[in-house]
């Protein structure tokens, strides 16, 4: 089968073969003519229209990209600035708050001090009053004690059978009470 096919193919090739059309010199002029025409046409299309246009498009895109990157950097700088401003505001606010707290504290302290001082004064007054009262009472008590002691002494001395004049008794009681 294979050999038959080969023979057939060989036979057919010999009767209808065109050889190599590439070596048919009668068509060369035609092909070269159209080739040159095509090359000139393509060259004109490229150098007059296409290449400058594509170069312009690429340059424009490059420019746009550069601009966009610059704009992005601007925005980034702005963002950093805004962040710094925010941080500053935060710090300020914190300081303000601290200040207010300190002020309030100081005020409260003052009030407290005042109140304590007032209370101290009042306590002092009350104390003095009380002391005065106590002193009065004590003085009253002393006087009573003296009178009682004199009387008692006089009575005791009288009971003992002595005769005591008032002056001696008073002096004796006074000296004893002092000691």
């Amino acid at each position: 089968m294979a050999t038959e096919t080969a023979t057939d193919a060989y036979g057919a090739a010999e009767t209808t073969s065109v050889g190599m059309p590439q070596l048919d010199a009668s068509t060369w002029g035609n092909q070269i003519f159209w080739l040159l025409l095509a090359l000139v046409a393509i060259y004109l299309i490229l150098s007059r229209v296409a290449l400058p246009r594509i170069a312009a498009i690429l340059a424009e895109r490059q420019g746009t990209i550069t601009n966009d990157i610059a704009a992005a950097e601007d925005l980034k700088a702005k963002a950093v600035e805004a962040e710094a401003a925010y941080d500053k505001a935060l710090v300020d606010a914190r300081a303000e708050a601290q200040r207010i707290i300190a002020e309030a504290k100081a005020e409260m302290q003052d009030d407290l001090d005042d109140a304590i001082a007032k209370a101290d004064v009042q306590i002092g007054e009350k104390l003095a009053e009380s002391e005065a009262e106590i002193a009065e009472i004590r003085a009253g008590a002393l006087a009573n004690v003296k009178a009682v002691a004199k009387d008692t002494t006089k009575e005791i001395v009288a009971a003992m059978g002595g005769k005591a004049d008032a002056k001696t008794v008073t002096a004796a009681v006074t000296s004893r009470m002092k000691g």
Partner: peptide, 11 residues
């Protein structure tokens, strides 16, 4: 049979 005309396309 089979016919091979591989070069006809270049005519």
């Amino acid at each position: 049979g089979l016919v091979f005309k591989p070069m006809d396309q270049f005519l």
